[in-house]
């Protein structure tokens, strides 16, 4: 198979684009997709410092690498979830990545913020682990960006992540979740930082290939709590569709974003208030994070 651009041997075939690229031209293709995402959704400008939430996995480190290469000012944020060897190893990957590129890496710990690491938090709540963990991550990432004064947070969500989330929302007709699914969520409150997903145009095989070709040392092993997660079942369904019909995932997500999403926008804005306990943004009196911390405290206390 030959590279579409130069005719040299291809490193990666992209069936949904009916194309194949050699390593240098694939890297160029991927960066172009990120530039297009940033431009189209006005994610951030070169004047802004972007806080990149990194997990040590392929997506977030590939994203950080692209943003550095594109000349953006960035700071990494690693959230230590306290998940045994997985967290230790992923933190080491992030630290090594930042050190090799002379970038600043901030580290926040779930245990110091919540009084217990994620495995203990999970025992204290009836929520599925990924749900409690996701809630904690969204809260702590936003709070860290606010504390340090960064205007925007970038995460490594890719096309597969977004398509799987959309699939899950549609399967349960969670119509309230649909308007929130977007590559860029603007700040709708002074205490809510803008959130963007510059990799949303790229399949996870593409971000993995980029990380491999750039020799980024990322954690290949996955979080031990993710085993059996529903999102994986959704990804598998979508990948079977993709094998039968290249472009299926892209069409599903982009069709939604371009044509269907506006239909689910609700005219009445959700009323945002500040949590009585912590002052962060919530739709109720006390935010979900503080309620979760309270559950953890009651369990941990003798």
């Amino acid at each position: 198979m030959k590279c579409r651009k130069c005719g040299e041997g291809a490193a990666l075939e992209l069936r949904r684009h009916n194309a194949a690229f050699c390593a240098p031209h694939f890297t160029e293709f991927l960066r172009k997709q990120v530039r297009e995402a940033i431009r189209q959704h006005r994610m951030f400008t070169p004047d802004e410092t972007v806080m990149v939430a990194v997990s040590g996995g392929k997506d977030s480190l590939a994203l950080w690498d692209v943003l550095i290469e594109e000349g953006y000012r960035t700071v990494g944020l690693y959230l230590d979830l306290g998940i045994f060897d997985y967290s230790r190893e992923s933190r080491e990957k992030c630290e090594a990545f930042a050190a090799a590129r002379g970038q600043q890496l901030l580290v926040e710990s779930v245990e110091s913020a919540m009084g217990a690491p994620i495995p203990e938090v999970q025992k204290a709540t009836r929520r599925p682990t990924c749900s409690a963990c996701g809630l904690s991550k969204r809260y702590l990432i936003n709070r860290a960006a606010l504390t340090h004064g960064f205007p925007v947070v970038a995460t490594g969500h890719n096309l597969d992540d977004e398509a799987a989330t959309l699939f899950g929302s549609v399967m349960h007709w969670q119509t309230e979740a649909l308007p929130r699914q977007s590559p860029a969520l603007p700040s709708t409150h002074p205490k809510l930082v803008r959130r963007v997903k510059p990799l949303y145009r790229l399949a996870e095989r593409e971000t993995a290939a980029y990380a491999f070709l750039r020799r980024i040392d990322y954690i290949v092993e996955e979080c031990p709590f993710a085993e059996g997660a529903t999102s994986l079942a959704h990804k598998e369904v979508l990948n079977r569709l993709e094998a039968a019909s290249p472009g299926a995932k892209h069409n599903f997500l982009f069709g939604f974003l371009e044509r269907a999403r506006p239909a689910f926008d609700r005219p009445e804005a959700v009323r945002l208030a500040e949590c009585a306990a912590c002052g962060q943004v919530t739709t109720g009196e006390v935010c979900a994070f503080c309620k979760l911390v309270d559950q953890v405290k009651r369990r941990v206390a003798p």
Binding site: G57, K58, D59, N158, D160, D161, E204, R205, T207, A208, F212, V220, E222, C223, P224, F225, A226, E227, G228, A229, S231, L232, A233, K235, E236, N239
Partner: peptide
């Protein structure tokens, strides 16, 4: 090398 984030089913 698997590329699917979120572990295995």
């Amino acid at each position: 090398r698997p590329v699917i984030s979120g572990g295995r089913r």
